[in-house]
Protein backbone atom coordinates (compact mmCIF):
# COMPACT_ATOMS: atom_id res chain seq x y z
CA UNK A 1 0.00 0.00 0.00
CA UNK A 2 1.35 3.41 -1.05
CA UNK A 3 -0.45 6.39 0.43
CA UNK A 4 0.48 9.89 1.50
CA UNK A 5 -0.12 9.23 5.19
CA UNK A 6 1.84 8.97 8.38
CA UNK A 7 -0.02 6.19 10.18
CA UNK A 8 -3.23 4.35 9.26
CA UNK A 9 -4.70 5.02 12.69
CA UNK A 10 -4.39 8.81 12.44
CA UNK A 11 -5.40 9.33 8.83
CA UNK A 12 -8.88 10.69 9.49
CA UNK A 13 -7.80 13.00 12.29
CA UNK A 14 -4.81 14.36 10.37
CA UNK A 15 -6.82 14.84 7.23
CA UNK A 16 -9.50 16.74 9.15
CA UNK A 17 -6.78 18.97 10.55
CA UNK A 18 -5.66 19.91 7.03
CA UNK A 19 -9.27 20.38 5.97
CA UNK A 20 -9.85 22.71 8.91
CA UNK A 21 -6.81 24.81 7.98
CA UNK A 22 -7.82 24.97 4.34
CA UNK A 23 -11.40 26.03 5.00
CA UNK A 24 -11.35 27.92 8.27
CA UNK A 25 -13.54 30.65 6.74
CA UNK A 26 -16.37 28.19 6.15
CA UNK A 27 -16.22 25.46 8.74
CA UNK A 28 -15.17 24.71 12.29
CA UNK A 29 -13.73 21.26 12.85
CA UNK A 30 -14.10 19.68 16.26
CA UNK A 31 -11.59 16.92 16.89
CA UNK A 32 -13.28 14.81 19.58
CA UNK A 33 -15.91 13.76 18.95
CA UNK A 34 -15.17 14.52 15.32
CA UNK A 35 -17.71 16.91 13.80
CA UNK A 36 -17.44 19.44 10.97
CA UNK A 37 -19.66 22.45 11.71
CA UNK A 38 -20.75 25.42 9.67
CA UNK A 39 -18.68 28.28 11.02
CA UNK A 40 -21.86 30.18 11.92
CA UNK A 41 -23.74 27.29 13.56
CA UNK A 42 -26.29 27.34 15.09
CA UNK A 43 -28.32 29.53 12.75
CA UNK A 44 -31.31 30.71 14.79
CA UNK A 45 -34.68 29.82 13.34
CA UNK A 46 -33.21 27.63 10.57
CA UNK A 47 -33.73 23.89 10.34
CA UNK A 48 -30.38 22.20 10.91
CA UNK A 49 -29.28 19.54 8.41
CA UNK A 50 -26.89 16.89 9.63
CA UNK A 51 -25.34 14.06 7.77
CA UNK A 52 -22.47 11.73 8.37
CA UNK A 53 -20.92 8.48 7.41
CA UNK A 54 -17.62 6.73 7.13
CA UNK A 55 -14.65 8.75 5.94
CA UNK A 56 -13.10 7.99 2.57
CA UNK A 57 -15.97 9.43 0.50
CA UNK A 58 -14.63 12.97 0.40
CA UNK A 59 -15.77 15.59 -0.39
CA UNK A 60 -18.87 13.97 1.13
CA UNK A 61 -19.92 14.99 3.76
CA UNK A 62 -17.54 17.52 5.33
CA UNK A 63 -17.06 19.28 1.99
CA UNK A 64 -20.79 19.99 1.87
CA UNK A 65 -21.02 21.84 5.18
CA UNK A 66 -21.80 25.52 4.80
CA UNK A 67 -24.35 28.01 3.62
CA UNK A 68 -27.11 26.41 1.57
CA UNK A 69 -26.18 22.85 2.41
CA UNK A 70 -25.30 20.98 5.63
CA UNK A 71 -25.13 22.40 9.15
CA UNK A 72 -22.77 19.67 10.30
CA UNK A 73 -21.19 16.43 9.17
CA UNK A 74 -20.00 13.53 11.33
CA UNK A 75 -17.02 11.72 9.84
CA UNK A 76 -16.53 8.13 11.00
CA UNK A 77 -13.43 6.01 10.64
CA UNK A 78 -12.68 5.10 7.02
CA UNK A 79 -15.79 3.37 5.63
CA UNK A 80 -17.24 2.97 9.12
CA UNK A 81 -20.33 4.84 10.19
CA UNK A 82 -19.80 7.46 12.88
CA UNK A 83 -21.02 6.97 16.43
CA UNK A 84 -24.02 8.40 18.26
CA UNK A 85 -21.95 10.74 20.42
CA UNK A 86 -20.69 12.55 17.32
CA UNK A 87 -24.24 12.88 16.03
CA UNK A 88 -25.58 13.97 19.40
CA UNK A 89 -22.96 16.67 19.63
CA UNK A 90 -23.83 17.79 16.11
CA UNK A 91 -27.53 17.89 16.95
CA UNK A 92 -27.03 19.94 20.09
CA UNK A 93 -24.69 22.46 18.51
CA UNK A 94 -26.60 23.07 15.29
CA UNK A 95 -30.17 23.17 16.50
CA UNK A 96 -31.33 26.74 15.99
CA UNK A 97 -34.71 26.08 17.53
CA UNK A 98 -36.34 24.92 14.31
CA UNK A 99 -35.39 21.28 14.68
CA UNK A 100 -32.89 18.97 13.06
CA UNK A 101 -33.12 16.76 9.99
CA UNK A 102 -30.76 13.78 9.92
CA UNK A 103 -29.77 12.64 6.45
CA UNK A 104 -28.95 8.97 6.75
CA UNK A 105 -27.65 6.70 4.04
CA UNK A 106 -29.22 3.28 4.17
CA UNK A 107 -26.53 1.10 5.69
CA UNK A 108 -27.22 -0.96 8.78
CA UNK A 109 -24.44 0.80 10.65
CA UNK A 110 -25.49 4.32 9.70
CA UNK A 111 -29.13 3.63 10.39
CA UNK A 112 -28.51 2.06 13.79
CA UNK A 113 -26.11 4.74 14.98
CA UNK A 114 -28.30 7.62 13.82
CA UNK A 115 -31.29 5.87 15.39
CA UNK A 116 -29.49 5.76 18.73
CA UNK A 117 -28.51 9.42 18.43
CA UNK A 118 -32.07 10.44 17.59
CA UNK A 119 -33.36 8.59 20.64
CA UNK A 120 -30.84 10.37 22.85
CA UNK A 121 -31.70 13.76 21.32
CA UNK A 122 -35.43 13.20 21.70
CA UNK A 123 -34.79 12.81 25.39
CA UNK A 124 -33.28 16.31 25.36
CA UNK A 125 -36.23 17.97 23.71
CA UNK A 126 -34.71 18.74 20.32
CA UNK A 127 -37.10 17.97 17.51
CA UNK A 128 -35.30 15.46 15.29
CA UNK A 129 -36.48 13.79 12.10
CA UNK A 130 -34.58 11.41 9.87
CA UNK A 131 -34.69 10.54 6.22
CA UNK A 132 -33.00 7.49 4.80
CA UNK A 133 -31.51 7.66 1.30
CA UNK A 134 -31.58 4.38 -0.64
CA UNK A 135 -31.01 5.15 -4.29
CA UNK A 136 -28.69 2.34 -5.40
CA UNK A 137 -30.54 0.18 -7.92
CA UNK A 138 -27.74 -2.39 -7.91
CA UNK A 139 -29.23 -3.77 -4.72
CA UNK A 140 -32.54 -5.54 -4.86
CA UNK A 141 -34.93 -3.91 -2.45
CA UNK A 142 -36.99 -6.20 -0.27
CA UNK A 143 -38.62 -6.23 3.10
CA UNK A 144 -36.38 -9.14 3.96
CA UNK A 145 -33.00 -7.51 3.30
CA UNK A 146 -31.07 -4.48 4.43
CA UNK A 147 -32.54 -2.73 1.39
CA UNK A 148 -30.88 -0.44 -1.06
CA UNK A 149 -27.77 1.53 -0.23
CA UNK A 150 -27.64 5.29 -0.15
CA UNK A 151 -25.16 6.61 -2.69
CA UNK A 152 -25.00 9.56 -5.13
CA UNK A 153 -28.54 10.70 -4.48
CA UNK A 154 -27.38 11.79 -1.04
CA UNK A 155 -25.31 14.66 -2.44
CA UNK A 156 -28.19 15.95 -4.57
CA UNK A 157 -30.53 15.71 -1.58
CA UNK A 158 -28.12 17.61 0.65
CA UNK A 159 -27.90 20.43 -1.91
CA UNK A 160 -31.60 20.68 -2.60
CA UNK A 161 -32.87 20.32 0.96
CA UNK A 162 -29.99 22.51 2.15
CA UNK A 163 -31.30 25.30 -0.05
CA UNK A 164 -34.82 24.79 1.28
CA UNK A 165 -33.63 25.00 4.88
CA UNK A 166 -31.61 28.09 4.01
CA UNK A 167 -34.65 29.89 2.61
CA UNK A 168 -36.56 29.11 5.82
CA UNK A 169 -38.62 26.00 5.13
CA UNK A 170 -39.73 24.34 8.36
CA UNK A 171 -38.76 20.87 9.52
CA UNK A 172 -41.83 19.13 8.13
CA UNK A 173 -41.35 20.80 4.75
CA UNK A 174 -37.65 19.86 4.66
CA UNK A 175 -38.48 16.29 5.56
CA UNK A 176 -41.18 16.06 2.91
CA UNK A 177 -38.90 17.55 0.27
CA UNK A 178 -36.11 15.16 1.24
CA UNK A 179 -38.47 12.24 0.82
CA UNK A 180 -39.57 13.62 -2.54
CA UNK A 181 -35.94 13.67 -3.67
CA UNK A 182 -35.47 10.12 -2.38
CA UNK A 183 -38.53 8.96 -4.27
CA UNK A 184 -37.19 10.43 -7.51
CA UNK A 185 -33.50 9.59 -7.46
CA UNK A 186 -31.70 6.44 -8.60
CA UNK A 187 -28.03 5.51 -8.96
CA UNK A 188 -25.67 2.77 -10.03
CA UNK A 189 -21.88 2.44 -10.08
CA UNK A 190 -19.00 0.33 -11.30
CA UNK A 191 -15.36 -0.07 -10.33
CA UNK A 192 -12.31 -0.60 -12.51
CA UNK A 193 -10.08 -1.02 -9.48
CA UNK A 194 -10.63 -1.68 -5.80
CA UNK A 195 -9.54 0.80 -3.18
CA UNK A 196 -7.29 0.16 -0.21
CA UNK A 197 -8.48 1.06 3.26
CA UNK A 198 -5.42 2.38 5.14
CA UNK A 199 -5.68 0.05 8.13
CA UNK A 200 -6.31 -2.97 5.91
CA UNK A 201 -3.35 -2.33 3.65
CA UNK A 202 -4.61 -4.33 0.70
CA UNK A 203 -7.30 -3.78 -1.92
CA UNK A 204 -10.83 -4.37 -0.68
CA UNK A 205 -11.54 -6.88 -3.43
CA UNK A 206 -9.64 -8.64 -6.16
CA UNK A 207 -10.04 -7.80 -9.81
CA UNK A 208 -8.11 -9.21 -12.73
CA UNK A 209 -6.32 -6.93 -15.21
CA UNK A 210 -9.31 -7.00 -17.57
CA UNK A 211 -12.16 -7.21 -15.08
CA UNK A 212 -14.52 -4.66 -13.58
CA UNK A 213 -17.12 -4.85 -10.82
CA UNK A 214 -20.60 -3.67 -11.69
CA UNK A 215 -23.05 -2.62 -9.02
CA UNK A 216 -20.51 -1.58 -6.41
CA UNK A 217 -21.33 0.47 -3.35
CA UNK A 218 -19.12 3.20 -1.97
CA UNK A 219 -17.38 1.21 0.75
CA UNK A 220 -15.11 -0.94 -1.33
CA UNK A 221 -17.63 -3.73 -1.10
CA UNK A 222 -17.59 -5.98 -4.13
CA UNK A 223 -20.41 -5.39 -6.61
CA UNK A 224 -23.18 -7.67 -7.81
CA UNK A 225 -21.22 -8.94 -10.74
CA UNK A 226 -17.77 -9.11 -12.27
CA UNK A 227 -17.44 -8.66 -16.00
CA UNK A 228 -14.75 -8.06 -18.58
CA UNK A 229 -13.96 -4.43 -19.26
CA UNK A 230 -15.98 -3.24 -22.26
CA UNK A 231 -16.14 -0.10 -24.39
CA UNK A 232 -17.49 3.01 -22.67
CA UNK A 233 -20.68 2.87 -24.74
CA UNK A 234 -21.50 -0.50 -23.22
CA UNK A 235 -20.47 0.48 -19.70
CA UNK A 236 -22.79 3.46 -19.82
CA UNK A 237 -25.65 1.15 -20.86
CA UNK A 238 -24.86 -1.20 -17.99
CA UNK A 239 -25.29 1.62 -15.52
CA UNK A 240 -28.04 3.68 -17.09
CA UNK A 241 -30.41 0.93 -18.22
CA UNK A 242 -31.15 -0.39 -14.71
CA UNK A 243 -31.57 3.19 -13.47
CA UNK A 244 -34.01 4.10 -16.24
CA UNK A 245 -36.05 0.93 -15.82
CA UNK A 246 -36.23 1.20 -12.09
CA UNK A 247 -38.07 4.44 -11.37
CA UNK A 248 -38.86 4.36 -14.32
CA UNK A 249 -37.63 7.44 -16.15
CA UNK A 250 -39.52 7.95 -19.38
CA UNK A 251 -39.78 10.27 -22.36
CA UNK A 252 -40.78 13.76 -21.31
CA UNK A 253 -39.06 13.56 -17.93
CA UNK A 254 -36.76 16.39 -16.89
CA UNK A 255 -33.68 15.19 -15.06
CA UNK A 256 -30.47 16.13 -13.37
CA UNK A 257 -27.67 13.85 -14.59
CA UNK A 258 -24.92 13.37 -12.04
CA UNK A 259 -21.83 11.68 -13.47
CA UNK A 260 -19.62 10.82 -10.54
CA UNK A 261 -16.02 9.62 -10.30
CA UNK A 262 -15.29 7.09 -7.56
CA UNK A 263 -12.10 9.05 -6.92
CA UNK A 264 -9.44 7.66 -9.23
CA UNK A 265 -11.20 8.07 -12.57
CA UNK A 266 -9.98 11.31 -14.15
CA UNK A 267 -12.12 13.97 -15.85
CA UNK A 268 -11.10 12.90 -19.34
CA UNK A 269 -12.86 9.55 -18.87
CA UNK A 270 -15.69 10.97 -16.80
CA UNK A 271 -16.67 13.58 -19.39
CA UNK A 272 -16.43 10.95 -22.10
CA UNK A 273 -18.96 8.80 -20.22
CA UNK A 274 -21.08 11.83 -19.44
CA UNK A 275 -21.34 12.71 -23.11
CA UNK A 276 -22.46 9.20 -24.01
CA UNK A 277 -25.07 9.28 -21.26
CA UNK A 278 -26.43 12.67 -22.33
CA UNK A 279 -26.91 11.50 -25.87
CA UNK A 280 -28.54 8.28 -24.69
CA UNK A 281 -31.00 10.21 -22.55
CA UNK A 282 -31.75 12.61 -25.39
CA UNK A 283 -32.48 9.62 -27.60
CA UNK A 284 -34.92 8.38 -24.97
CA UNK A 285 -36.73 11.72 -25.00
CA UNK A 286 -35.51 12.63 -21.53
CA UNK A 287 -34.44 16.24 -21.04
CA UNK A 288 -31.18 16.75 -19.15
CA UNK A 289 -31.84 20.09 -17.48
CA UNK A 290 -28.97 20.13 -15.03
CA UNK A 291 -25.69 18.26 -14.94
CA UNK A 292 -23.14 17.60 -12.22
CA UNK A 293 -19.86 16.00 -13.23
CA UNK A 294 -16.97 15.24 -10.90
CA UNK A 295 -15.69 13.24 -7.93
CA UNK A 296 -18.43 14.16 -5.45
CA UNK A 297 -19.01 10.88 -3.61
CA UNK A 298 -15.97 8.67 -3.72
CA UNK A 299 -14.34 5.53 -2.41
CA UNK A 300 -10.82 6.65 -1.64
CA UNK A 301 -8.66 6.19 -4.75
CA UNK A 302 -10.98 3.70 -6.46
CA UNK A 303 -11.18 3.99 -10.22
CA UNK A 304 -14.75 3.77 -11.38
CA UNK A 305 -17.84 5.85 -11.78
CA UNK A 306 -21.51 6.07 -11.06
CA UNK A 307 -24.52 7.74 -12.57
CA UNK A 308 -27.28 9.29 -10.52
CA UNK A 309 -30.48 10.45 -12.15
CA UNK A 310 -32.93 12.73 -10.38
CA UNK A 311 -36.35 13.43 -11.84
CA UNK A 312 -36.74 17.17 -11.47
CA UNK A 313 -39.66 19.43 -10.81
CA UNK A 314 -39.57 23.25 -10.89
CA UNK A 315 -39.03 23.59 -7.18
CA UNK A 316 -36.07 21.21 -7.21
CA UNK A 317 -34.48 23.07 -10.14
CA UNK A 318 -34.77 26.35 -8.26
CA UNK A 319 -33.28 24.86 -5.12
CA UNK A 320 -30.46 23.20 -7.06
CA UNK A 321 -29.58 26.56 -8.60
CA UNK A 322 -29.81 28.42 -5.28
CA UNK A 323 -26.57 29.80 -3.83
CA UNK A 324 -24.30 27.38 -2.03
CA UNK A 325 -21.00 28.05 -0.32
CA UNK A 326 -19.16 25.07 1.11
CA UNK A 327 -15.60 23.78 0.77
CA UNK A 328 -16.54 21.54 -2.16
CA UNK A 329 -19.51 23.24 -3.80
CA UNK A 330 -19.88 26.89 -4.49
CA UNK A 331 -22.07 28.89 -6.76
CA UNK A 332 -24.17 32.01 -6.66
CA UNK A 333 -21.96 33.43 -3.89
Amino acid sequence: MKKIINDPSTVVAESLRGFALAHADLVTVQEDPAVVYRADAPVPGKVALISGGGSGHEPMHGGYVGRGMLSAACPGAVFTSPTPDQMQDAITKTDGGAGVLLIVKNYTGDVLNFETAAELAAAEDVEVRSVVVDDDVAVKDSLYTAGRRGVGGTVLLEKIVGAAAERGDDLAACEALANRVIANVRSMGLALTACTVPHVGEPSFDLAEDEIEVGIGIHGEPGRQKMKIAPADELVDRLLDPILEDLPFTAGDRVLLFTNSMGGTPPIELYLAHGIAERKLADAGITVERRFVGPYITSLEMQGMSFTLLKLDDEMVGLWDAPVHTPALRWGV
Binding site: S81, G109, N113, T116
Partner: peptide, 14 residues
Protein backbone atom coordinates in the same frame (compact mmCIF):
# COMPACT_ATOMS: atom_id res chain seq x y z
CA UNK B 1 -18.65 0.34 22.40
CA UNK B 2 -21.56 2.54 21.35
CA UNK B 3 -19.40 5.64 21.28
CA UNK B 4 -16.26 4.13 19.75
CA UNK B 5 -17.11 1.32 17.36
CA UNK B 6 -19.54 2.78 14.85
CA UNK B 7 -20.64 0.62 11.92
CA UNK B 8 -23.27 -2.04 12.43
CA UNK B 9 -21.34 -3.85 15.15
CA UNK B 10 -21.12 -0.82 17.46
CA UNK B 11 -24.82 -0.33 18.16
CA UNK B 12 -25.47 -4.07 18.03
CA UNK B 13 -22.82 -5.15 20.52
CA UNK B 14 -23.42 -1.96 22.47
Amino acid sequence: LISKVGGAAGPLYG
